[in-house]
Amino acid sequence: MATADKEKKLKEGWEGISRFFRANSLWMLMYCTGCCAIELPQAMTSRYDMERLGMGPMATPRQADVLLVTGYLSVKTLRRVIYAYEQMSTPKYIVAFGPCTINGGIYHDAATVIKSLDQYLPIDVYIAGCMPKPEAVMNGFQDLIDMIKDKTADGWKRYRDNYDWYKQNQIESLGELRIKDEYHE
């Protein structure tokens, strides 16, 4: 009993230390198919300087911690986003930009654009605004950092626990998840 207690405490202590490092070193994977991506250069360069929060761009999903979905996703791009998200190593977070990821935004009646991203992937932070200003983007990242510190950024745990529900939604809208076209045969 005592040893189990001690182990639990040790694990919690380690988790706490890890959270401190995770919160202050977020590497981003930018999925820039939407228009909100145009706000990221300002947030990254000298005016708002994202690097002071320890954030930086990364080249591949494997290296990254945060997936930035900047705007609308069509059926074709959603399939690739799911691929990218599942390649990332846990813990991983998603920040969704703009109304298109919330309820479809100006694309609510488009035949090939999905409406609500949280049906398919777990979102940790939404940044509202069409497009969000760089201040809003920085504020969203600060929120994400605070959420990681107080353990509420648990999207990757929700995805793991409700995997069947997410998979079912994905298959309903996408048919099957495999990328199937003449270039992947």
């Binding site: 919330i102 309820n103 479809g104 609510h108 009646d109 488009a110 035949a111 654009v113 999905i114 409406k115 609500s116 949280d118 049906q119 939604n169 309903e172 809208s173």
Partner: peptide, 10 residues
């Protein structure tokens, strides 16, 4: 109509 039929809305 296609969008409503195909994609889940919030």
């Amino acid at each position: 109509a296609y969008s409503d039929r195909k994609y889940k809305a919030r």
